[in-house]
Simulated assay, not measured.
Amino acid sequence: MIKSNMKNIFKLILKEQLGTILILCLLLTLILVCAVLLTYLFDAKLANKITSLVISNIFVGRVPSLSLGYAYNLPNNIVIPVNIITELILVTLIYPLFIFSFKGILKIKILEDFFSKINDKKHQHQESFKKYGKIGLFIFVFIPFWMTGPIVGAIIGYLIGLKHYVTIFIVFVATCFAISLWGLFLNEIVSMMISFDKKIIWITLLIFVVIILINKIRKLFSKRNKK
């Protein structure tokens, strides 16, 4: 449940950089939605595949989404941009929401645990961020480790005192590089697996997704039991 002071939010949207970031989020969302809808007019099967990539990225992550795209035999110029836009939409949405929550303008109950983990992550790597600054943030977003990535990186950028536009720019560049390299790597792996038997990649992808979902469900039940 979100409790908000609408007057303060509108002021932020109109006057502060966070407003521009939210507008960017709406623009990217509009571009993605329009692209999918236009694709439905010409090729419904392709549009369904693109939609599944977006959903997969949001709920499971970039690696399963990229792998799914290549399992569909989609080219790099579809798989990589769709994942980049999806992750940037998430960043430009959650980053302002975190700051609104941090400043007490919004109360976002569903994201409180996530924000708490990010704060712990910031303290864990505080010395590295102080030492390497923007380069450290770029590397943090770029490397594919647990609890790293564009959303976490953007929020940590704010917590260590970087300006909003600087943070979003670093996250944008690092995300583009990371997804592009992941895409090229996974494309080669998937192509090699398909050359033996196409069923192998679907079985591997299914097992990978099931493991991730089981892990998320297990953590959810663990949190509820603790409460």
Rank of each mutant, 00 (worst) to 15 (best):
P75F: 08
G161Q: 07
I55Q: 10
F177H: 00
L205T: 09
R62H: 05
K11G: 09
K7C: 03
K122L: 05
G153W: 04
L111E: 06
P75G: 05
K11I: 07
N48R: 08
T167F: 08
I194D: 10
K121V: 01
K7Y: 11
K122N: 11
E127W: 01
A47E: 05
V173T: 06
I189P: 02
A174Q: 02
V152D: 02
I194E: 12
L41P: 00
V36L: 15
T175S: 14
V173S: 02
Y95N: 03
I135C: 00
K103L: 03
I50W: 03
F142S: 03
K198S: 15
A35I: 04
M192L: 13
K107P: 00
I84N: 08
I135N: 02
T86Q: 10
E87G: 14
V210S: 13
L30F: 15
F185L: 15
G149I: 03
H164M: 03
E188K: 15
V166H: 13
T20A: 12
F177N: 00
G153F: 04
Q126Y: 13
N57S: 15
K15P: 00
V190F: 08
L186V: 11
S191L: 11
I212K: 08
K3P: 01
G19M: 02
M1W: 10
G153N: 05
A154T: 03
A47K: 03
K49R: 14
A35C: 07
L32Q: 14
G136W: 07
L53G: 07
A35P: 00
M192R: 10
F115I: 04
Q126H: 08
I58L: 14
S65T: 02
L12N: 13
A44I: 14
N5Q: 11
V54P: 02
Q124F: 11
H123W: 01
K199G: 13
N73F: 11
W146P: 09
K109N: 14
S101N: 15
E188W: 14
M192N: 10
F114K: 11
Q17E: 15
I84Q: 07
L18R: 06
I170R: 07
N187G: 13
S67W: 13
V190Y: 10
L88W: 01
N76M: 00
L68R: 12
